[in-house]
Write a protein that binds this DNA or RNA. Structure first.
Lengths: 347, 347
DNA sequence: CCTCCTCGTGGAATCGATTACACGGAGGAT
DNA sequence: ATCCTCCGTGTAATCGATTCCACGAGGAGG
């Protein structure tokens, strides 16, 4: 692979001139520039990004550490992050933590070793020492979706409180009173928040959230299945199960089906995080949709601000309820939308 | 961020000794090694991978260019690639081409500029000049899932012919005779092969595959919808539609539902690429499953072989049919498996 | 005609590692 | 006692870029 020296030799100029010509530096004569460009063409030269990064101390690369790539929500997030980063001239290296703190740590370390310009993290847990050190040391960093309280890093996320209230209103309106939740890990903010929001919304209707109706999940399908089985084994099972993410909802669907029960007749189901497949499940699943694309975009913009040395503000975008049939009473999709504040899906 | 010089100063040795101590070189005294390690600890030193790469001319990084991250098949592939690469001490940078040749080109270029050690590609089209140049120039490279004929690069893929024959046997056994296919782009090998396999399998039963029953898709949901609408508008619509990937199947499901028709009563549906969601769609979708994890693993191993200067053989793994209910006659899941060679799903 | 500025260019330092080569000292062989 | 070997270490070259500084040529102004 030819280096800048080869180009210089071919063009009959010094490496300094080649570098200047290629970087659009003004003080290069038209003749020299033309010769350099010709040499680049004949040799098929491409600048070595590694060498350039070493010298300039910037890689034009962003790191993104997400909790679970197989979760369609994070896949979409990753995609929008890459899209926006590319538009801004950055590449993205994705690290998949698989909800495992040790893997998260591995990726953060690797990314930092590669001297990425900035780090986007959706923390799996309370934060590895390595990550907290990096944050303190001034590595440009932004949390997305989940965050770690007490760390001075901008957070880009969506607030599901209003949507959870809408959901509970919807469920209450359908006559459901015994509502259970499959929670995410307590170590994650989203895990805690969704339970809190649910509990508050229930309280507004004078409904309790007994401990037996709070199942501890880990954002993976398997835990959704196990927790749902536990709910079904209760002397008085819940009427509706609210899964704190889409994979646990999938697991819940598994569990219900394995018992030969039906949704929503025997038990209702709702999920946090909407995905295209929820339109086509049996039945279509009522879900809370996050503005995932916007989240990814905003996160990248905030991070790039930080890299540029500016503040990079936190952003909170609202989530919204998408009513489908999994909690009962199919919304009459042929009719005009109901006057209720709850929005309905248009599949 | 401290450099090797700082460590050397702190430990009272030269940078050479620090480097040797850190890389496990034998000729370093125990005392020096201890002092270096202590200095590393107090300074929180981490070697700069950029500088190391420049010197050693290897990045311990693999590039993976896939056609569409949002497709769960590729997401899973990417995950297994990363997993195996990590086990082998490599990082992976994923480039998402979104089925766009220009984007594919962009990622290949960027990856090559970063001097990745090897490239894994699932080509969107016939191959960009940049990619073909790289292959010819000897960049270690392996095609995965899709490939480009005539290029001397190992291919890791799965062969769906047998599974497609099983599928057609299954459909024929259910009494279906008018079978249509939503094809992938003709520029991709998988796009062409699946149509060919389907046509051959039909021929074995004396069934034709008229042009009207071959819809041109692009592996995205939207095209599945459009093609299916076309099929439904035919004077004699097909009895079963076979989508060449899971996203087009999703689109087909959309189209059928939009007409108020039902699967499988009004029209049957089958798909290439099985995904967890197909168990929970309405109805569960009969699909051809690829051994995605094994594919990813094998691809990385072949690539690492190439990087090591060895041959790195092509690998072809069989796909298998998973029968569900979307083509009619729900398999009786309570009964022992039928003696037919067609395997049945156990959800 | 001389001086000064500007412009284009090249030489060389630099980024942070790795590694070939040289060197000094200790220990064993003769 | 002398020489050789080996071990541990340091000096310096190197990877491929960017960029500071210096320098020569040419034009403008006095």
């Amino acid at each position: 692979m030819p280096s800048i020296k080869d180009v210089a030799a071919e063009a009959g100029v010094s490496v300094a001139t080649v570098s200047r010509a290629l970087n659009g530096h003004p003080s290069v004569s038209a003749a020299a520039r033309a010769r350099v460009l010709a040499a680049v063409e004949t040799l098929g030269y491409r600048p070595n990004a590694v060498a350039r990064s070493l010298r300039t101390d910037q890689t034009r690369t962003l790191g993104l550490v997400i909790s679970d790539v197989l979760n369609p929500y994070f896949t979409e997030l990753a995609r929008s992050v890459e899209e926006e980063a590319r538009a801004l001239g950055y590449s993205v290296i994705i690290g998949n933590a698989d909800e495992r703190p040790d893997l998260q740590d591995h990726h953060v370390t690797t990314l930092l070793d590669r001297r990425i310009d900035g780090l986007l993290v959706s923390p799996t847990d309370g934060g590895s020492p390595r990550m907290l050190d990096a944050a303190r040391a001034g590595t440009p960093m932004v949390f997305v979706d989940r965050w770690i309280p007490g760390v001075d890093v901008p957070v880009v996320r969506s607030d599901g409180r209003a949507a959870v209230r809408d959901l509970v209103a919807h469920l209450h309106g359908l006559g459901h009173r015994r509502l259970a939740i499959i929670a995410g890990p307590a170590a994650t903010t989203t895990g805690r928040e969704r339970v809190d929001a649910f509990r508050e919304a229930l309280a507004a209707y004078g409904l309790p959230l007994p401990d037996a109706y709070i199942g501890q999940g880990d954002f993976q399908a398997g835990s959704g299945r196990r927790v749902t089985e536990g709910f079904l084994d209760l002397p008085e099972p819940p009427e509706v199960v609210f899964a704190a993410d889409n994979l646990m909802a999938l697991g819940a669907l598994d569990a219900v089906r394995a018992r030969g029960l039906r949704v929503p007749e025997d038990i209702g189901l709702a999920a946090f995080d909407d995905i295209p497949w929820f339109v086509h499940t049996d039945p279509p699943v009522t879900a809370i949709a996050q503005p995932t694309r916007d989240l990814g975009r905003a996160a990248v913009r905030a991070l790039v601000e930080r890299i540029a040395g500016r503040a990079g503000a936190s952003v909170t975008l609202p989530a919204r309820l998408v009513v489908r049939r999994s909690c009962g009473e199919p919304p009459s999709e042929q009719h005009p939308p109901s006057p209720s504040p709850v929005r309905r899906s248009t599949p």
